[in-house]
Design a protein around this nucleic acid. Structure first.
Lengths: 228, 228
DNA sequence: ACCTGAACACCGTTCAAGT
DNA sequence: ACCTGAACACCGTTCAAGT
């Protein structure tokens, strides 16, 4: 390509969102700058400001796009509804792991701003027997725990597989004293690289689906115990 | 041992970390630039690179500093240990809410890189009857759910109390159709501003301690149900 | 309506030089 | 050992101008 400028390119909110998602998928969240995004669209950086007031609004649109359509059918019994919702939520992040920090980290794009998700979760909890104030607390418990977990599971890695993080984590574990930290010492092999604080890769390379399933079981157990 | 000539401006890792935390507390996470931090310490920006290899490492030090010492005494029964740990974790974030995105969002500073926390949690779960692979999954469940929840609760607000977010959220709720979204419509008053997706302030102004308590109850219920 | 183009006020980081 | 100073390669955003 000798010429990288085309005469005049037309663009749209959806095209911008899709191009932004592609950059985030391929190069990570911090690679998305207005200038690079504009170049990918063969447009001047300032043209983007006609469609979005600021970079943050593009990120919000990306987050909503990734989270769209995760609400299960509303005729499911409440336990299967919760399990399906949890699975859909995690699957959406698995498809686009680099957007994970956007979901939980920023208030604007907190979870899916989707009426079907809200109503669906309220419906499931309502079928579980919750009403009024209990319904609100149950909603926040489930949403906070599930979105929070996957956000953490797919937390942003340092920078392109930093080998020093692995060294630092193994060094941290090596400092464990068998007398003061017996369980850590005994289970070091099973924990290293596979558990929070002691890992150097995120859920893309070390998935935590089993712990996530246990969390859903616990939430359901808690809801069953809490009803009249 | 170098000769101790009186330096004009001397600084240390701890001083840098403390000054960084102060800026984050007062002006928010995005206000922390190397240049501003250096100015607060009356030093040239590049001086900081003698103590930290990069900005990210300063953020990691801040996160660890905030999370230091949250492990409860290890002689507690497992349920009180979990409740105290959860309370200490949230209290640490309440003291420094602006660092919340650092805790869950970045792999390097995922939760507290603290051996006492790891050993303590393993001990509590072990006293709850978990061993081997179950112990690892339980550890990840509790850590991911609790850290994830508070990270979400104190997610970064858009920018200095953006009033348009409030408008957008109320507008979203207004679009709820009483026929298709009956529960959302009926509970709109209780949900608006107080629940995920439908709020415009984070936990600093709208705490979600009750939902957090319910989450801990559920985790304990799940652990009790899951043991032999 | 939609985009270009220049400009402003910032960034993190590297490298050489000073002491 | 510890800091200054200049420089590089970037940023997001504003505003005026073009069509």
């Amino acid at each position: 390509m000798a010429e990288k400028r085309k005469p005049r390119k037309s663009v749209s909110r959806l095209e911008i969102t899709a191009a932004a998602l592609q950059i985030i998928d391929n190069q990570g969240l911090e690679a998305l700058s207005m200038r690079r995004l504009a170049e990918a669209l063969s447009v001047f950086p300032t043209a983007l400001y006609w469609y979005f007031p600021a970079r943050n609004d593009i990120l919000e649109a990306v987050a909503q796009h990734v989270m769209a359509g995760i609400a299960p059918a509303s005729d499911l019994a409440w336990q299967p509804w919760l399990r399906t919702f949890a699975a859909n939520l995690r699957a959406a992040i698995v498809r686009h792991p680099n957007v994970a920090p956007l979901i939980g980290g920023q208030l604007v794009s907190n979870a899916a701003g989707d009426l079907e998700v809200i109503e669906g979760l309220l419906g499931a909890l309502s079928r579980a027997g919750l009403t009024g104030e209990e319904l609100v607390q149950g909603y926040n418990m489930v949403m906070g725990a599930l979105v929070g977990f996957v956000t953490q599971e797919f937390a942003r890695p340092p920078e392109a597989a930093d080998p020093s993080l692995r060294d630092r984590v193994t060094e941290l574990a090596r400092r464990a004293d068998p007398l003061r930290h017996p369980l850590l010492t005994q289970n070091a092999e099973a924990l290293l690289g596979r558990s929070f604080v002691l890992r150097w890769q995120n859920g893309q390379h070390q998935p935590m689906g089993k712990a996530y399933d246990r969390l859903i079981d616990s939430l359901i157990a808690g809801l069953e115990a809490g009803r009249p």
